[in-house]
Design a protein around this nucleic acid. Structure first.
Length: 116
DNA sequence: GTCATGACAACGG
DNA sequence: CCCGTTGCCATGA
């Protein structure tokens, strides 16, 4: 159970998102929308983005294992793009194109019950 | 309070 | 498959 910090759903959502991201094993990836759904907010993909970005500065989160739903790195900044790609390749993820990977092969399927 | 922004998603053409 | 539009919602100005 991850019911920390009072009754504010936002707080719990944040905690869950962080736990989920930390639970992604090396060599696997998840999409923002997928994380949002598992955390209980089907429409919260953009908040996942925000949380991830904000938290990765303070905590050590495997942010590079989070990509967009198309199975590609949708990042604009070249430096960050290269960083993420390198980290993934370093974990054994094969790229099919400049920024595309095989989602069906690398997607991580967490058990939702772990986060209730 | 409004308004713009964002490591996005889903859908239509 | 590529492109544009629309929806979403926390955060900061």
């Amino acid at each position: 159970m991850y019911m920390l910090k009072g009754e504010k759903g936002v707080e719990r959502f944040t905690e869950m998102v962080m736990e989920i991201i930390k639970s992604i094993p090396s060599g696997k990836v998840m999409s923002y929308g997928q994380i949002a759904r598992v955390a209980g907010k089907p429409r919260g993909a953009r908040q996942v983005v925000r949380i991830l970005h904000a938290m990765s500065k303070k905590h050590k989160l495997p942010w590079h294992r989070v990509i967009n739903s198309r199975g590609e790195i949708g990042i604009q900044d070249e430096e960050l793009f290269f960083t993420q790609k390198s980290l993934l390749e370093g974990e054994g993820v094969q790229f099919k194109g400049k920024s595309t990977i095989d989602m069906e092969k690398y997607r991580y399927h967490p058990d939702c019950d772990e986060y209730l």
